[in-house]
Write a protein that binds this DNA or RNA. Structure first.
Lengths: 221, 221
DNA sequence: CGAATAGTGTCTGTAAGACAGTATCTG
DNA sequence: CAGATACTGTCTTACAGACACTATTCG
């Protein structure tokens, strides 16, 4: 049984005015000390119950964020990816509203557009690319994008999220029909977003059943 | 850096007259010696280039099969899943025609219907369940099921594979329209399956571009 | 009242499924 | 020729997108 380095990495994604962004931190230790990288770290077999627990711990320690939505992405492994030796990184991805990152007030956490990434250590570029493509593909037929918004949001806001993720505009009537048939939203009675100079929009929240678990559609949007 | 046991497990799936089946082998060593389990083993950091390579090696060593289609499934980990200690299993799934398993002539390899599994060690039951559900879900919108048939096959054979996997009958005209628009099959000119007492069926083969890579549909079948 | 966006009713084109017909083999 | 299954043409139905209309706010 040869020694293998076991780590977790977390791709923390959020949506800002700039589009889809990923949270990176400068590495505190060699190798690649000082280079922006995914939050990650060794598995602590003494204290972590499993890799998901390790990912949650690493994310909380390094970014101050307890992400409600954290899902396994894939595992990256091999002799070549880390100069320290044969390594395994079990990668997770987390989705949070941009406000959550701001509230954490960890100024060492910096956001980068997924389309303009800096040079990255290890295979972190591949990991982020995989995460973005997974998010985009799952967005086509699931409630995933809701996790990029806050607890309550309007249908036009949600539609814009889907549009940014999928890179194309969506028919408003079709979008609302889909949302109705997915039956994943609860209107917040009597609550409206009146921030614009126009008719206020009904506020909704994700139904509890969809907070952790995804809803899958038979057909896409 | 706490010690972690690093292994790979392979869910080898095939389709027989009994339906979808998984290949299991009796374990040669403790723990769970003599119990039917997934083919799996330690990662050999000295010789494996990455986990996929380890999975391919394990599958070839234990079953004699060089599976053309081998894809990462998920990683199972934690303190509780293996009595030897905190462990990681990077699970892969492979799809082969039933004939490939017969040709390998490894009589220790036994097939079990995925609906009637024997008691399984570790979390192998969860791993198989995840693999089956992944296969079923991907079958809805991809060329995956082709790998359960041999190199050449007829459209009615392929339709039956999709029907068994998805557990429902498919409209023949729609199915053939989809196959045409996916454009993943090449007719084998002048070759027909004339085994029945009826009009022979055109033989097709998967286009080379789809042998390793999946075709994804916008909409399902 | 005009501008702006929220939200809805309805038409239309496209794509999926039903059905029925023709084609081609065996016994 | 009867039976069986392969394959195809066409009608019908369901759903996604286009369009237009109403609703409600601010300035």
């Amino acid at each position: 049984m040869d020694p293998v380095i076991c780590t977790v990495d977390v791709v923390l994604l959020t949506l800002t005015a700039e589009g889809l962004e990923v949270a990176l931190l400068k590495r505190e230790h060699a190798p690649f000390k000082g280079v922006a990288a995914l939050p990650g770290g060794y598995i602590h077999a003494r204290t972590d119950t499993d890799a998901r627990d390790a990912a949650r711990r690493v994310l909380l320690d390094k970014t101050g964020i307890a992400a409600p939505y954290l899902e396994q992405l894939a595992t990256f492994s091999g002799a070549a990816r880390d100069p320290r030796g044969w390594s395994v990184s079990i990668a997770y991805y987390a989705l949070v509203p941009a406000a959550t990152i701001a509230q954490a007030e960890r100024h060492e956490v910096r956001l980068y557009s997924v389309d303009r990434l800096p040079p990255l250590p290890f295979d972190h570029g591949d990991i982020i690319e995989t995460a973005v493509s997974r998010l985009r593909s799952k967005s086509q037929y699931s409630s995933l994008p809701c996790h990029l918004l806050g607890e309550v949001f309007t249908l036009p806001q949600l539609q814009r999220v889907y549009e940014v993720l999928m890179g194309e505009s969506i028919n408003k009537v079709s979008f609302r029909r889909k949302m109705t048939e997915m039956d994943m939203l609860d209107p917040v009675d009597g609550q409206f977003d009146s921030s614009g100079a126009h008719r206020p929009a009904q506020l909704y929240r994700l139904k509890p059943a969809f907070r952790e678990q995804l809803q899958l559609l038979e057909r896409g949007l």
